[in-house]
Amino acid sequence: MSKRWARTVALCKLLPLPGTVLMLVAAFGGLGPLWPAGLAVWVAGVAALFVRVRPTPREPVEVSPPVRGRWVAVNSPADRVPSHGVHAYGQTYAIDLVHHPDTEREWQGVRAAWPPARRPERFPGFGRPVFAPVDGVVVRVRRRSRDHWSRDSVPGVIYLLVEGIVRELFGPGRLLGNHIVIAMDGGGYAALAHLRRGSARVTAGQRVTAGEQIAECGNSGNSSEPHVHFQLMDAPHFLAALGMPFRFDRFEIDGGPEAGVPGGRRPFTVPSSAPTPETGADRRG
Rank of each mutant, 00 (worst) to 15 (best):
G221P: 02
A117W: 10
T8L: 15
G69W: 01
V72C: 01
E106H: 14
L49G: 06
A183R: 14
A113T: 10
L34W: 13
S199M: 01
D254I: 08
A235I: 01
F131S: 08
L24N: 07
R265E: 13
T56D: 11
I180K: 13
R52L: 12
E252R: 15
P129E: 04
A281K: 09
S272D: 14
S223L: 00
A94L: 06
V41G: 03
G280P: 02
G19N: 03
G173R: 15
G187F: 04
A40W: 08
V74P: 00
A10M: 13
M233L: 12
D102P: 13
A40C: 09
A281W: 10
G156V: 12
W5R: 15
T56G: 04
F251I: 09
G243I: 02
P172Q: 02
G164V: 01
R7E: 14
C217E: 01
N222F: 08
S83T: 01
P65R: 06
A27I: 13
E121I: 14
K3G: 11
C12L: 15
V46R: 06
R144F: 14
D147A: 07
F131D: 03
M233G: 03
Y189L: 04
G136K: 12
G243L: 04
R146K: 11
R197P: 12
P124R: 10
G109A: 15
